[in-house]
Structures are given as structure tokens and as C-alpha cells.
Nucleic acid binder design. Structure first.
Length: 532
RNA sequence: CGCGGGGUAGAGCAGCUCGGAAGCUCGUCGGGCUCAUAACCCGAAGGUCACAGGUUCAAAUCCUGUCCCCGCAACCA
């Protein structure tokens, strides 16, 4: 297959709380894709980072009497540690308050402004007399005229986007004072100019994106509006336009560009041209894929805002992308959080349980097409009966066969060879279709097939009566195990690395059939997983 | 009429796009095996596919209507 340039964009966790399992479940798709694409030989960058700006870290900092940066650094540390334990293979996991990101964003926004996609609007905005400043729409609360609920003013959950008039008499969340409308100017992004581009984007991907991404995007496209670009805050990316020195860019606009600025920085560090991932005219003969991996609340930002911005640069940016939008992982089983003594913090789970089997569980039982419930019991079932009993035990019963010290020379059975070939093919197809549940299950089917083969061959009988048959059985199963270390690499990377160590295989896995060397010593083999 | 997801064996789910003998994992019951972390393999029981209409030779799958459940209004992907 021809090499492709693949960019994996994993949504930016917000520096407002510790990382939780929902983020792991919805972002795992990114790491599965990254590992798979590297294995087939594609050029891959997987990027993300800590989203540091906006009102929440600023408000939290004020409460605690520290700087916003202190807050962001605290959560960034938590994110990095948890993601590392879950084996997320980011090429770059940066932080948006970084000067490089801010400078590049300002260059990009200048270009959007010069291209005429940012325009000034004079309007009445809520001004808090007590705080003596204009307040951002996430710093105030209004009663939504559409649904009647109290909501922050940027975007009501009922889908209503508040108008200028709706903000009359809003409440300041910082001090509780009623705000008054004063004349102010905002910069607006001309999102409506990209209606055709965005409509085509959805249409081109109607068999590729999941239903949630298509429905959600179409809903917004039916009533597309320009969106405010500036915010009255001092924590964020400055706006490179005269007269806006005291305002910053709305956090979403610049965080999304982090995918691009991360790739730029990475290119400088590693000596490649970032444009080969993001520009149509660089390496034009190479297919480019951009995956957007996130949960459903992130959909329109990735299906509309970012593509519109990139198109607005009028500089050959790749606008088409593959949306991988997860549903929600529900973690509301109070019994579990009590009995386990933890909440659903990713770091705690990583320390207390097995991150490989958690990854496999999320791939096979995660919120791929609908909300999925997560409980310790469900995870335990996956861990014990599938990962330990089927997967772990196949390895143990083969490589720790009583009295066996070295892997015998043998011939791989045809049925095993075929099944391995077919499994590579089907798992690959499903990963490329972003159907990870099917991919994970197909991979596990190979394990079941090998266990069945083992039982039918009865190596414990062959060992006494038919030593050649015994050698073939063990060798065939070892062959399966070697190839499982490739096929399961996207799902359970730590265990797969151990298997490669047991069998003396290449350290770097590839998406190709591997053979095992007969005669290798098996004394290093030990159980991969413990029951819980 | 706020938005969205769902109702398939005791539990958790797949199948629905493109109608054609109801599947998977766990649990239960019975059997086999003893290499292996009491793991593995085989077999059985258990479902009017929420309900009611319609289209069709044929509907879990398409259409219409009804009922019920869940998520989003404090965080949060």
C-alpha cells in the first residue's frame, strides 16, 4: 500500500479538572489509529495538548489566589501523567499558553483578518459596573428565551445561540451584580462565508463520519451564523488587530489551531516540513488523512469551525477530515465509586488497574455509537474472562507447556495461517472505518480460534505419542501469539511489547505477518496479566 | 412539541444503512480435558427483537402512531 501522511488530532483536555475516564474512552480512537497507521508504514503525527485559556482557569485562579498559569500547570501535569500511563503515543502534547502556539496563532489570525473573514461589529455588550469591565459571555448567566432555563450566555444547551438582546440584564458570575449593556466592539468570524465548503464537507463524508457528527453539523448548517471571535479577558491569545489590544481570541478558535501549531513545532524539532501533513500542494501525490478524535460535545468545533478557518487562510490547507466522534461514557454508578474508593479519575484507574485491559475494554465496549455505561463489574468481566482467561492463558498454556524449555521447530498449520491472514485484513479494514468495537472483537476471535485449535490437537497427548504433531501444534500457536503481538498492538501495547520480548521479535511492530524463530529459550515467559 | 441516544434471552451488547432461517460475551445447567493464572473446549436451556397498525411473497431491519428509559440545565469528552 502507498504511504500516506496521517494527522491524528485528539481533542484538547481543558485545564479545569483532573482527567477522567471519559476522556480516555473517547480519545482512545486516536491512539489506536496512530499505532495502526505507523505499523502499516504511514507517516504519522498524533498531536494534542492542554487547553489553557478561557474563563474557567482564570476564575479558578482568582478564587485560589494564584495565577491562571499555576492552575493550568497543575492539571497539565495530571494529564501528562495519566495519558502516559494509558500508553497514549502522542508525538506532541503541548500547552496552549506556550509562546510558540500564541505567536503562530496570531500570524494565522492576521491572515484571516487580511483575507477579510474577520469583521468589526459595534454592539451593546454586558458590562459589569462592580467589576468595572466588559464580561465575557461565559462569565454571565441569562434566562434562555428559547427554553427558559438559566444558562451561560455563549451557547444554551437547547441549541439556542443568544442574541444581543437576550443579554440584557444578565448576571455577572464573578460578583453576582446585574450587568448593564454598554457599547463595545467585537471582532466576528464570517462563518457564513463557508456554508458551501462545510456543506460539501458533510456530503463528502456522509458514509464516513458517524451519524452524530453528520446530524449535529447539519443542524447548525441549517441556521448558520457568524460567530464572535473576540473576548474581553486578559488570559489568552492577543488579537493582532489595532484597537483590540485589550481583548483575546475566543479560546475555541485558538485551541483548535493547536493541531496545526503542534505539527509546525514538531517539524522544527524533527526536521520535517509540517506542510506535508496540512497542505494539499506539498507532496501532492501522497494521500493525506486528518482524523479528529473527540466526544460528541466537540463535534461542531471540529466539523465547522476549524475547517472554516483553514479554508479561510486560502493557502491550500487540507479541509477534509475524518470525524471520529464518540458518544458519552456514563460513569454514574454510585455503588462503584464507593466500593472502589475512587472516582473516575484516569490517573487513579491507571494506577489501580491494568491500562491495557482498560484500553481493550473501552475499544470493545466503549461509547462508539451510543452512550455506554462503565462500571467496575463490566470492566472486571472483560479483564478476567477475555483478557486474562482467553488471551493471557493462550500464551501461558503454549509457551509454559510443562517441561518445555525451548520453542520446538514445527510447521504452521494451514488453517492457522489463513486465520492469521484474514484477521490482519479484517482488523485493518475496521480500524480504517473507525469501527473499533468490531476490530477489537475480530482480534479476540483469533485468540478463541487458537484456543480451540489447541484443544483439538491435544498437545498434552501428542507430547507422549506424536512428538512431530506436538511440535507443530506448539509452533503453530506460537506463530499465532507472535502475530497477536502485532494485531493487538493498537489495543494493548504494553502486553504486546512483552510478548515480543518473550519471542525475541523485532521491538518495533509492523502490520505484517511475522514468523517465530524455533529454538528460542522460553525461560523469560511469565503471566502477562493478573486476575482482579 | 428543547436537543440527542436507546428499548433484541437473567445481565451487558451486536445485527437495522443495502428486508430473506435471531447472534456475541458473561451468568445458569450438563459433558470433555488436565497443557495452562480452577484457566481451555463441547453441548443445552432461555427471546411473541417495547407496543399497535401499515408496506411486502418475506420486517428486529422500511413507513406511521403510541408507551417507556437514559444523557445534556454543577462539573465534564
Amino acid at each position: 500500500m502507498k504511504k500516506r501522511n496521517v494527522t491524528i488530532c485528539v481533542s484538547w483536555p481543558y485545564a479545569n479538572n483532573n482527567l477522567h475516564l471519559g476522556y480516555i474512552a473517547s480519545s482512545l480512537s486516536g491512539d489506536i489509529l496512530a499505532r495502526y497507521h505507523r505499523m502499516v508504514g504511514d507517516d504519522v503525527v498524533m498531536v494534542s495538548g492542554t487547553d489553557s485559556h478561557g474563563t474557567k482557569p482564570a476564575i479558578k485562579a482568582k478564587k485560589e489566589g494564584v495565577t491562571p498559569k499555576d492552575i493550568v500547570d497543575r492539571y497539565h501535569k495530571n494529564f501528562v501523567e495519566a495519558l502516559d500511563l494509558f500508553s497514549f503515543s502522542f508525538d506532541k502534547f503541548s500547552i496552549t499558553y506556550d509562546d510558540y502556539h500564541k505567536e503562530k496563532c496570531m500570524e494565522i489570525f492576521k491572515k484571516l483578518y487580511d483575507n477579510g473573514y474577520l469583521y468589526e461589529k459595534i454592539l451593546n455588550r454586558p458590562y459589569c459596573p462592580k467589576c468595572a469591565k466588559f464580561v465575557a459571555d461565559t462569565e454571565i448567566e441569562i434566562t434562555c428565551p428559547n427554553c427558559g432555563n438559566r444558562t451561560k450566555a455563549d451557547n444554551c444547551d437547547c441549541g439556542h445561540v443568544p442574541t444581543e438582546a437576550d443579554l440584557e440584564g444578565a448576571t455577572c458570575l464573578v460578583c453576582g451584580e446585574t450587568t448593564e449593556q454598554r457599547e463595545d466592539k467585537v471582532l466576528v468570524f464570517k462563518l457564513t462565508a463557508f456554508k458551501d465548503v462545510l456543506t460539501k464537507l458533510v456530503k463528502d463524508n456522509e458514509n464516513i463520519w458517524r451519524a452524530n457528527a453528520i446530524n449535529e453539523t447539519n443542524k447548525y448548517l441549517n441556521d448558520l451564523r457568524d460567530r464572535d471571535f473576540s473576548r474581553d479577558l486578559d488570559w489568552g491569545v492577543k488579537i493582532p488587530v489595532a484597537g483590540y489590544e485589550n481583548k483575546v481570541v475566543w479560546v475555541w478558535w485558538e485551541a483548535l489551531l493547536g493541531y496545526v501549531t503542534d505539527t509546525m513545532k514538531l517539524g522544527e524539532e524533527r526536521g520535517f516540513d509540517y506542510r506535508k501533513f496540512w497542505k494539499k500542494d506539498v507532496e501532492p501525490e501522497t494521500e493525506k488523512k486528518v482524523y479528529m478524535c473527540h466526544a460528541k460535545d466537540n463535534i461542531v468545533f471540529h466539523s465547522m469551525f476549524l475547517p472554516a478557518m483553514l479554508a479561510g487562510l486560502e493557502d491550500n490547507f487540507v479541509v477534509n477530515n475524518t470525524m471520529v466522534s464518540a458518544e458519552y461514557l456514563m460513569m454514574n454508578n454510585a455503588k462503584i465509586s464507593k466500593s472502589s474508593g475512587t472516582c473516575f479519575e484516569a490517573l487513579e484507574w491507571a494506577k489501580n488497574y491494568n491500562t491495557d485491559s482498560l484500553r481493550y475494554h473501552f475499544a470493545a465496549n466503549g461509547p462508539e455509537k451510543k452512550d455506554a455505561n462503565f462500571t467496575l463489574e463490566l470492566y472486571q468481566t472483560t479483564h478476567n474472562s477475555e483478557v486474562v482467561n482467553k488471551f493471557g492463558n493462550l500464551i501461558n498454556r503454549t509457551l509454559k507447556f510443562k517441561g518445555l524449555e525451548k520453542l520446538p521447530e514445527g510447521k504452521v498449520a494451514d488453517e492457522i495461517k489463513n486465520m492469521v491472514d484474514v484477521t490482519y485484513k479484517i482488523v485493518a479494514e475496521n480500524i480504517e472505518k473507525t469501527e473499533f468495537k468490531k476490530a477489537a472483537e475480530t482480534a479476540m476471535d483469533l485468540v478463541a480460534f487458537a484456543n480451540k485449535y489447541y484443544d483439538e490437537q491435544k498437545p498434552w497427548v501428542q507430547a507422549k505419542e506424536d512428538i512431530e504433531g506436538f511440535n507443530n501444534t506448539i509452533y503453530s500457536c506460537a506463530y499465532v501469539i507472535a502475530n497477536l503481538s502485532n494485531i493487538f498492538e493498537p489495543f494493548m501495547p504494553k502486553a504486546c511489547a512483552k510478548i515480543r520480548g518473550f519471542l525475541g521479535l523485532e521491538k518495533t511492530p509492523t502490520w505484517r505477518v511475522v514468523d517465530v524463530k524455533a529454538g528460542i529459550s522460553l525461560d523469560k515467559v511469565e503471566p502477562l496479566f493478573a486476575r482482579i
